[in-house]
Simulated scan of single mutants.
Amino acid sequence: MAFLEIRNLEKSFGKVSVLKGIDLEIDKGGFLVLVGPSGCGKSTLLNSIAGLETITGGSISIDGRGIDGLHPSKRDIAMVFQSYALYPNMTVAQNIAFGMEIRGVPKAVRDKAIGQVSDMLQIGHLLDRRPSQLSGGQRQRVAIGRALVRDPKLFLFDEPLSNLDAKLRVDMRTEIKRLHQRMGTTIVYVTHDQIEAMTLATKIAVLKDGLLQQSGTPAEIYNNPANTFVADFMGSPAMNLVPVAVHKNGSGVAISAERDNLEPLVLTVPNAPAGLAGHDGGKVIFGVRPEALTDRDSADRNARNIAEGECLIEVVEPAGSDTFAVTRLGGKQVTARLRADANVAAGQKAKLAFNLDKAVFFDPASGQRIG
């Protein structure tokens, strides 16, 4: 039995349906990240787990115990908010200990917990300061510390890093990952940042318009997206999604992508998914990640199926460890990730290698992956 189980969860505000039959679960010690664009329902789902929103339908259980009708204080959950929500008139130590003090925890026990948490989060030297004297990253550590001393069954994080600058966000992401590995806590974490989702999660749930698009491990979400929305949303740069024509080629299948002022690019797809042949004579969406479209020398040497094609390079973007080259296929901008010293130039042709082991295909009408 999963530790956190969400079954057919629905939430409406008046006539507006925000969550539409969400089914999710996470094992004990797992790190579930809810990701999606603004307004997709991820914060509403988190608030429903916390008891801050009353659900319209479905059920939520933690460790086999239904919590649908329980007051938030009875759910044994700790929450870390985007805004930190610290008491400005209290010191760091008082903020961390406040919840324990309210519950009547003895002072000696409180002091021991404060010491353990402050050492873990490296904020022991800040215990006598007030929130106004702290940086954003320090405030976030205090908010996390306040949650940790509760020792709850479940931690909820609501976009905790969104107010931090880019470098501090990366540092805090590493700290949260290290904390999870050390403590083995069960976490549900909301973010709109798909890099955060990929680096932190043991399981990702991608939402759009209140519907669960796909859930799975980061590798499953990244390599085997269920539809074009997930393919486009997860990954930076995003997966290239190219309209191509499908033709049976003997016992195999070939795809062709139109190109401006050039002959169509034709690629033979070995071991094509069974459903692809059913689109013979029609069109599909060909999906390939930028790292699976590169120069021949950088292509995965373990790949079984590499196809090459000459492409006109429109833009070259040096990025330190990589060079990104932009071309156009099927009327769409396509990004290739090349080695840093790749010999490419805008306005010139370059031979690119397509790793067809990593190719995925989608139905152009429904957007669903073709299996």
Rank of each mutant, 00 (worst) to 15 (best):
G145P: 05
Q214T: 02
N249M: 12
V206Q: 03
P152A: 14
K203M: 08
R150T: 09
L262S: 14
S162L: 08
A254D: 06
S251Y: 14
A219W: 12
V190C: 04
H180K: 10
V149I: 14
G275V: 08
A238T: 14
D171P: 00
I176W: 12
G235V: 05
D151S: 15
F157I: 05
R259N: 03
L161D: 00
E263M: 13
K208I: 02
K167R: 14
V190M: 06
I144E: 01
Y189E: 00
M198N: 03
I255K: 07
G278E: 12
A254S: 15
V206W: 10
F157D: 00
A201C: 11
A226M: 05
F157L: 13
L276E: 01
P218S: 11
D232E: 13
T174N: 07
L200I: 12
V188P: 01
D165W: 12
L212W: 10
E159S: 09
I195E: 05
S215Y: 12
L154F: 12
V244K: 12
T202Y: 14
R146E: 03
L212M: 07
V206D: 00
M198A: 08
V246Y: 09
N224M: 05
A238Y: 07
Y189A: 01
K208V: 01
E159P: 02
I255Q: 03
G210V: 08
A272S: 11
V266G: 03
P152T: 13
K208S: 06
D158G: 09
L200V: 11
S215L: 03
Q214K: 07
